[in-house]
Design a protein around this nucleic acid. Structure first.
Lengths: 149, 149
DNA sequence: ATACCTGCAAATGTTTTGCAATGAT
DNA sequence: ATCATTGCAAAACATTTGCAGGTAT
């Protein structure tokens, strides 16, 4: 876990110096808050958490910072069909996919190596050099199947 | 092929009568254009095609009609990360997934039953009743790998 | 006649951007 | 000093919606 943290900071530091980016109060706070909050955060979610700690941070900066993290590869942008982009930490995590409950919005993560293997085979067959992929299964979670409202 | 067409019209007719919907010049033209155009159309794409045939059709109506087709199950809404919703015909087609070239935007469709089977198993393991799913592989297509611009 | 539909323009919700001021190195 | 970064408000998008007039059955 310490390794992951050190690794992340290293990647971020390198990325920032390579791109002439600076460390600022807002940036640091946003990045810190993002990486210490589990889940799939929308910019709005993240903004409200950040503002609880420092009210002098604008949404625009949160958008800009998350784009930065996304470009540097430290965060992944996800789109679960609710109209807003959500971000999740990318480093020190295995690749995984999602089950999404269409009633309550619950998101469950899962990994399946055999699916990944098959995906690679498919890509190869079509001559694609795949750099990323996403897979989402939509339906009703256990609880929502019970509660037929 | 004739079966598919007949089947589609039947489903649509039933859906429309069940929901008290009417057949109109705009609606018919939009639906017709949509089903006779292959590919993954954005509303903007579809609108421009429709307007070439009848300039008196507004975007709003195209949006409303595509939502209707989507609700009736005759079209699937897709989101490939370029910011607009794309629609594809749903009937008379096997379920399939997509390979998307991140440079030229090419979209290749594929099917893989073994992946589907594994997806079902995953969902079952987590107690989900899956109603739909999507899987997208992003990368460079054969041509774009060659042309390193 | 009675709903339903349409076009239009205004509204929405999310994300981006121009700009002058501020901040980091 | 220099150049990146910020907040703000305005702009940009894709999409939705209210409403008055038009249309299918």
């Amino acid at each position: 876990m310490t390794d992951v943290l050190a690794n992340r900071q290293q990647i971020l530091a390198r990325y920032m110096s390579e791109h002439g980016l600076k460390s600022t109060r807002q940036r640091d706070l946003i990045i810190d808050t993002f990486f210490t909050t589990p889940g799939h955060l929308s910019v709005e979610d993240l903004w409200s958490k950040v503002r609880a700690l420092d009210q002098r941070v604008s949404v625009a900066t949160v958008y800009r910072t998350m784009k930065l993290l996304s470009d540097s590869g430290l965060a992944h942008a996800r789109n679960f069909g609710d109209g807003q982009t959500r971000y999740e930490a990318a480093l020190g995590r295995e690749h995984h996919d999602h089950l999404i409950c269409t009633r309550c919005g619950a998101i469950v993560e899962f990994e399946n190596d055999r699916i990944e293997t098959l995906q690679d085979a498919v890509a190869k067959k079509h001559g694609f050099a795949v750099t990323s992929h996403k897979m989402e299964l939509y339906g009703l979670c256990k609880d929502c199947q019970r509660t037929r409202s």
